[in-house]
Every structure is written in C-alpha cells, then in structure tokens.
C-alpha cells in the first residue's frame, strides 16, 4: 500500500505540476519525463538484473527511427508508427540479447558498446533517409492522434506523463512479482539462482527485451512529442546518459531513474548557460558517484531511512 501510494503520489504531483508550472519548466518536465522513461528502461537491466550496458542508445534510436522513418517516408499515422517504433526496439533488443548474453562482465559492456556504435554509424551511412547528424523534423500536422495535437505544450506534457506512468507502474509491479525477484537474485548471485532451478538465461533475455522496449518507447515518444529525429540520439553520450541518471538517482530503485534525470537535466541546463563544456559536470558526477555514493540518491535514502523503498 505504502509503495503504491508513493508512486501514485509522485504521478499525481506531476499531474498537478503540469497545470501550475510556467511554460518553460513545463516544457523541461515533459522532456525529463520522456528521458526518465528511457532511464526506467535502462534500470530494468542495470539496476535490477545487474547487466551493465554501454549501448542503450541503439534501443532509444530504434524506437526513434522506427517511428520517425515510418511517419516521414511511409506516411504512417502517429499511433501505428509508435507501434512500429516499439516493435523495432523489441526486435533489436531480442537480437542483441541472444548475441550479447553469451558474454559476461567487461565483454558484455564492450559488445553492447560496439553494437550501438554500429547502429550509430548505420544511421549516418543511410543518410539519404535519416539525414545523418543533421536529422529531420517531423512536421507539426502529422504529429497528432485523432483530434489531439501532440505538439501543443499541454497535451505534450500529459502524453509524456502517460508514457512515464506506464513505465513506472510497470517496473513497480515488476518488483512485486516473482519475475522481478528472480532478476534481483540473478544480480546478486547468478550461480545460486541457477542452482535453485531458475533459468538464468531466459530471465536475462526478457530483462534485456523489456529494458530495450521501454527505452525504444521513450525514443519513439521523444521523436513524436518533440518532432526531431537525429543520429546524435544514437551516439555514445546517449548511451552514457541513462547510466548516469540511474547511478545518480539510485540503481535498482523504481523512482531513482526519475530523480536522477531531474537533477541532471536541470544541472546541465543551468551549466550550459555558463559554458560550452557542460559535459564536464557529467564526468565529475560520474567520478564522485563511483567514489562516494555507489547506491545513488534514492539508494542512500533507502539505506539510511526508508528501508521499504522498492
């Protein structure tokens, strides 16, 4: 009950904020919720299953290009295009899972990094359709569902909230059912989990697919809501960002990804007004986190004060 209350409370707070925030922060928060969904997806693999991926941008990109290319070149409507984005991400993550899960540890990180790099280069190579680094803009008149105009700041905010709610409640539910418990068991002790009779491989496989698909949903939603598709979203920094957000907010906590994204977004937003070298803070935060707060913000809170935090 406490857990459900906390999550619904957070979502209700966000719903209220959507009505009272000034336009600038409302726009920021829409973006944060979409990116936090990406982080929630990342957290399924990294936080709960203990698989450190350095290539999640390819899943984000699969959703983004799946939706973007279908709408731009296929003339598909927003809803089926979103479905195409989801399916692209799911298929890609299944393929990556089958291949990359043969490796463990450092090799797993490098393999995911390499696959993601290949995806990024492919986005550049097929520049005729993707327009490479420059990217393309989805016209305002096609970014609508029925009568609802998704480029309107208010509807965009609530669309982002809807997406984030689904992802958040999904992971909350995951921590309560047997599947989620087994994932944590895999993270803590793989051999023991196997000995207890669980199929470690299939749990890891589904963790990657769920994680990749949620990330892809975030990518598709980003393209749809903000109307831009570009190769920079598949580049290495976009694989590092979710890792950073999750680490900062707290890996293996349900609301950690949101907290981390929120903090980092405003920090970078503030610093990019001061200097072009705002990525410096990304580096410093990463180093400080590994040195002093391995559990992240929500993780430290859970350790010290609120042990029931999921």
């Amino acid at each position: 009950m406490k857990v459900l209350g906390l999550h619904l409370g957070l979502l209700a707070l966000l719903a209220v904020l959507g009505m009272i925030l000034p336009a600038y922060h409302q726009g920021n928060l829409s973006r944060i919720m979409v990116l936090a969904t990406y982080a929630v997806g990342y957290n399924v693999m990294f936080g709960y299953t203990g698989l450190l991926s350095l290539g999640h941008a390819m899943f984000f990109g699969a959703g983004m290009y799946g939706l973007g290319l279908a709408m731009q070149h296929g003339g598909v409507g927003a809803v089926p295009a979103f479905g195409i984005g989801l399916v692209s991400a799911a298929v890609l993550s299944a393929v990556v899972a089958v291949l990359a899960l043969r490796t463990i540890g450092v090799a797993f990180m490098i393999v995911t990094l390499m696959f993601s790099q290949a995806a990024f280069l492919s986005a550049l190579y097929f520049g005729e359709w993707t327009r490479g680094d420059e990217g393309f803009v989805l016209a305002q008149q096609i970014r609508r569902v029925g009568e609802v105009d998704l480029s309107n700041p208010v509807t965009r905010y609530y669309a982002a909230l809807l997406l984030f709610s689904v992802a958040l409640l999904l992971t909350m539910r995951m921590t309560q059912v047997r599947f989620g418990h087994v994932l944590v068991a895999v993270r803590e002790n793989e051999e023991r989990t196997r000995m207890l009779g669980y199929s470690v491989w299939s749990h890891k496989f589904w963790a990657v697919v769920i994680s990749g698909t949620i990330s892809g949903a975030a990518g598709a939603a980003y393209a749809l809501l903000f109307g831009y598709v570009g190769a920079s979203f598949v580049s290495v920094p976009y694989s590092i960002f979710p890792l950073l957000w999750v680490l900062l907010g707290g890996a293996g906590t349900t609301i950690g990804p949101f907290v981390g994204t929120l903090f980092m977004f405003y920090l970078i937003d503030y610093l990019s007004g001061l200097t072009t070298a705002y990525m410096l803070v990304v580096g410093i935060v990463l180093v400080l986190l590994t040195l002093f707060a391995r559990a992240g913000l929500m993780g430290e809170i859970r350790k010290r004060w609120v042990p029931w935090l999921p």
Binding site: L243, L247, A277, M279, L280, G283, V285, V287, T290, L291
Partner: peptide, 28 residues
C-alpha cells in the same frame, strides 16, 4: 579514483567514463 574503488570492474568503467569527459571538456 581507481585505487579507491579497488579496481572493481564495473566501478572502474564508470569512473574512466567520468575521467574521459573531465579530460575532454577541460581540453575544450
């Protein structure tokens, strides 16, 4: 940095990613 995280594989990767951005952005 690295010595303090006892060369734990995951922590060193994250830390060297951090060092990457620190050096790169200081150069910028």
């Amino acid at each position: 940095v690295l010595k303090r995280v006892h060369y734990d594989p995951e922590a060193t990767i994250v830390a060297t990613i951090g060092i990457l951005y620190i050096i790169q952005q200081l150069a910028l």
